[in-house]
Design a protein around this nucleic acid. Structure first.
Lengths: 179, 179
DNA sequence: ATGCGCATGTAAGCTGTTACATGATTTA
DNA sequence: TAAATCATGTAACAGCTTACATGCGCAT
């Protein structure tokens, strides 16, 4: 995934490996982290593949490298961005894509959000069914903490569903904070 | 982490590797997944360390292995469970612990939840500050999706904070669904 | 008799992290 | 002048996943 995120950071300007890390940290640091130990080797790989072009430059006595995304790299990135998320993929993988959805035609973005939202709704339904079983059994007291993680799942899914809905309808994001 | 989760699954009964996987899937599948390729080798490692004892048995013509947690294994598990989460640890790592918090004295559980909750509150404050900067710049339209992930972070943190509060106060978990 | 669920396991590979090594530049 | 930040990179290894290999037991 990091491979694609790096390409995404390079869409608007040439950056150094160090800058890329800062951009990731500031932009999606709340759900995704990348270390230099993964960024630098990947920049080498992307250069070999022709997705980016590396150029050396000097700033004072310091040697730096900045990376420029190629047309091929842009295609690779957009193909990843358009792709539906696999059902086993993490929430983070979807969020990382949404971060770059400004680069996608609005209708494609909306469609992909809706597809993801439906999966969330299905999953929430399954968890609600599971919850009902426990309520019937009425072993609530003994399994308070075991049940709590199930409830957490339900809450988290609900807040993601609400979020998806706001995005699809291009509503003011502030709505979410007031919710 | 899986190492500790496996030990946790064995606290109430002896299980086979296959059973352990089912238990994990059904219990915390909404935020944690484990494959056989990781479970079986770890069961070997835990056996060598003396945290579990393996015994072969037959069911029909089928050879099975069931695993029993030792006193040492219980100590290892409880030490992990009591430990505060490191600040760089994932939400999943905390949730996995909470799933087993029935095994902890109530006051320790409450204390650890409160510590975690405070970190969440701090983090949410930082995100709210970040959000204010963007509102002032008023580039909202251009960066709708970039901003959306920030709002997602805020919402998710808020729902986790609410969840922590319910748990600490031993409130009915149903409160969360009605929220 | 075919496929699915049960059951155990290994080997290869992926995707990172952590720790280290090196050195320039800025700021307190 | 010391510490923090900027900047690049490597080596070791952690912690998995995926795919494969094997075979039992049951239901359709």
């Amino acid at each position: 995934m990091l491979e694609y995120i790096i390409l995404g950071t390079l869409l608007n300007s040439e950056l150094t490996g160090y800058d890329i890390r800062k951009y990731i940290e500031e932009g999606i640091g709340m759900f995704y982290r990348a270390s230099f130990g993964s960024i630098y080797p990947l920049l080498g790989k992307l250069t070999n593949q022709g997705d980016v072009i590396c150029s050396n430059f000097q700033e004072g006595k310091r040697n730096k490298k900045k990376y420029l995304i190629t047309e091929q790299g842009k295609t690779v990135f957009i193909n990843w961005l358009r792709e539906e998320n696999e059902s086993n993929s993490s929430m983070e993988a979807f969020m990382a894509k949404v971060f770059f959805f400004d680069k996608l035609p609005r209708e494609v973005a909306t469609r992909n959000i809706l597809i993801y939202e439906k999966k969330l709704i299905d999953y929430k339904e399954r968890l609600l069914t599971q919850r009902k079983k426990y309520i019937i059994c009425d072993q609530n007291d003994q399994f308070y903490f075991k049940l709590s993680t199930l409830y957490f799942g339900i809450c988290k899914l609900q807040s993601m569903i609400d979020w998806c809905e706001v995005l699809r309808n291009e509503q003011d994001l502030e709505t979410l904070v007031k919710m």
